[in-house]
Amino acid sequence: MTAIRKKNSGTSRSDLVYRVVAVGAAALVLILMAGLMLELIVNSGPSILKFGVGFLGSTSWNPVTEEFGALSSIFGTLVSTVIAMIIAVPLSLLIALFLVELAPPAISRPVGYAIELLAAVPSIIFGMWGLFVFAPFMADHVQPALKNTLGFLPLFDGPPMGIGMLTSGIILALMVLPFITAVMRDVFRMVPPVVKEASYGMGSTTWEVTRKVTVKYGFSGLLGAVFLGLGRAVGETMAVTFVIGNNHNVSSSLFAAGNSIASTLANEFTEASEPMYLSSLVELGLVLFVMTLLIQIAAQLWIRRVAKKAGGGL
């Protein structure tokens, strides 16, 4: 009897330690987040007080007169991300479907490895490749072609320099593609074969099974994959800095040079010695932080709604 009790108390003590350590580890994340947020708010104080809400709507970025506004950076971040998602999402979906549904293992395996390898390439490599190889290619072939065919649109106006919003969007697409593809592939793999076989048994074609069963079943998982890529694209720094052109302007042309929040921080943080300049840069960081947070919340809400509505399996 005593032996058993002793053993019990020992277990509960180790349980307690386990619990405290686990709670502590989890709390660390929250503390870090709160601390980061606090630090950002405190340090952007002078800029928030001086510019107020107007900071978000102003396109001026003048270190000489110390007039700062975030609009061009927010605009650049959103536009480059949207371009990236427009290219990457359908492409990833097709690649993932091909790997799971169509390709024989002899092909799907090496292609799968290649995608995982692509995900492991450091972003600076994408940036350098973008600047030295891809941007000249864009300037010489892609942009003149776009200009000749769709040049009447303001989107494709201006000199084809190879560097700018469009190029950075495409580079971003290449960078998030492997992440989205990898998650989508796993989602499709989790669709139970029974469901698909039942559908085939009822006389569906491959396309019908893919569209009405596989994609529908894993829809919330697919959304998750998209938002994973989105989160990465919004904050991507090095590759974008190399090819976006780093100019604080808002242009309707995708050929024009722009900037993103992350690229502005990477470029200007080290040399910003004036307090108001520094504070405005920190506020840019805060804006990025809030943007990412909002995207995450929207993603969670949407996924929950879709999961309820469509009744997918994941």
């Binding site: 001026s60 970025w61 003048n62 270190p63 000489v64 007169t65 320099m161 560097i163 700018g164 800095t241 190399f242 052109g245 780093n246 100019n247 604080h248 040079a257 900037n259 990477a266 470029n267 200007e268 040399e271 910003a272 010695s273 300049y277």
Partner: peptide, 17 residues
């Protein structure tokens, strides 16, 4: 319009690091 500084509001162009 612009002035003298280590970083200025450039009227035109693109920036390299």
């Amino acid at each position: 319009k612009v002035g003298t500084a280590k970083a200025v509001e450039w009227p035109t162009g693109m920036g390299g690091k």
